[in-house]
Amino acid sequence: MASTENRKPKTENPPKNLRIFLTGVGGQGTLLASRLLGEAALAAGYNPMVSETHGMAQRGGIVVSTVVLGDLQSPLISPGEADIVLGFEALEAFRALDRCHARSLVIANTATLAPYPVAIGQARYPSVAQMFHRLAEQVGALLAFDADALAHRSGSPLAVNMVILGALAATEYLPISAQDILSVIRTRTKEKFLASNLQAFELGAAAARDPRNWQRR
């Protein structure tokens, strides 16, 4: 499993094809995040494909979406083929390990949302520290922090998606710039949430600049 090349993200040559897998729980804003990424990529001249989960899955279930960039036509991401995983919730970030390969970047929220079987004591929520320890051993890099806390600090507890996008934009994995994403956020956000969304984005970016949040193989 251990691969010696690509211990660090390639900064100078962003990959031609990039597959981004977003996962979280209904209500966390994963769909908006994937749409914003897609819009930013389109504005930057890419041909993005974005796939979404709608319907029954949104009643408290897992919501996944994908953003695929580059010379690819498929909107879906198969197991083992995500270059980037954005995990909006700790358990769901770990569950998406099946999408990862040895060079994947995983950006994960350490905050948890107990699934119902856990809430009523019928199942156990795994230790977050242990999950992320295992996860970091398998992928190229793990960037993990409490995105819920940062969203609260931005003044908008629902802005976890902005925090995660800000963190992603501050890494060097994306072929599109933070400015590309920010300008889409500005056009897509209602006036009254704009300031807190921008603040959340910036707090996410700051979290990505903090080396203590990173584990690299």
Binding site: V25, G26, M56, A57, Q58, R59, G60, G61, I62, L91, E92, F94, R95, L97, P115, Y116, P117, V118, A123, R124, Y125, P126, Q130, M131, R134, L135, Q138
Partner: peptide, 13 residues
């Protein structure tokens, strides 16, 4: 990899 099952997250009313 974790050595234990992951809890399901069924949708709920």
């Amino acid at each position: 990899i974790l050595g234990q099952p992951l809890p399901d997250r069924p949708p709920n009313l």
